[in-house]
Design a protein around this nucleic acid. Structure first.
Lengths: 125, 125
DNA sequence: CGGTATCCGACCTGATACTG
DNA sequence: CAGTATCAGGTCGGATACCG
């Protein structure tokens, strides 16, 4: 991937969109952040995140595994244990995600205020 | 917003999710990046982005306006001109977004490779 | 325990037509 | 030019049931 041209990023937006929309996915960010602490098992994550359905957890984990963001390890015990751990690639994503989280933390109140103001103006009209 | 505790970010994930999913939206990132260069008019953006429908452009702009990320200015000329410009808040978002874009640029080929490998393994099974 | 399969409603998205 | 209204298809996401 060449970034040597002065072209703005959005020229390549077509190829980025699939990655960006994965990250923007409802659960991906929370899963990645949860796994940065330490590897987790399936139901352990389900409890840690809270509010996620079994299906969406399975789907999102599968998508992340497909992207090579995490590694799925099956321990052939009884009952079976499956452990999910971030790969190096997944760990490297945690960094820009935290940047985004920091930004969100810094501005979320202002955004929520803006929304209230905007909605109130709409309601008045 | 306090970030003084050692608590991981995902504790507050509920409040972040609306912001994060906005950013992860299919068009938001491209619109913000396009506007970082300079303010644009409606159809100008439509052409610059390419592939976006008139409706989705209108909706996404409205959502960004609601969040206070951009300002909509109507010039009462004939024909009417409407200019969209990022606010300070919107400009400040461009930074973490570029971080994410840089990360995506650096790793997208590896991710696409991972996807191919994963899909090939699935097809073989 | 760790999933997959199925169903179903809600929402997202594009196309098209129409308005000021 | 800059939208809004309406319709139709597809996808998202949860609940439930079932399997190894």
């Amino acid at each position: 991937m060449e970034l040597t041209t002065p072209e703005p990023l959005h020229i390549e937006c077509g190829r980025f969109s699939s990655v960006l929309s994965s990250i923007g996915d409802k659960w991906t960010v929370m899963i990645v952040l949860t796994l940065t602490e330490r590897p987790r098992r399936f139901n352990e994550m389900k409890r840690a995140i809270g509010g996620i359905s079994q299906q969406m957890l399975a789907r999102t984990l599968r998508a992340l595994e497909r992207d090579g963001m995490l590694k799925r390890t099956v321990h052939p015990t009884v009952p079976p244990q499956v452990e999910y751990a971030l790969t190096d690639l997944g760990q490297s994503l945690a960094d820009p995600i935290r940047q985004l989280g920091t930004w969100a933390a810094a501005h979320i109140e202002r955004i929520e205020d803006n929304r209230s103001i905007f909605d109130a103006a709409r309601a008045a009209a």
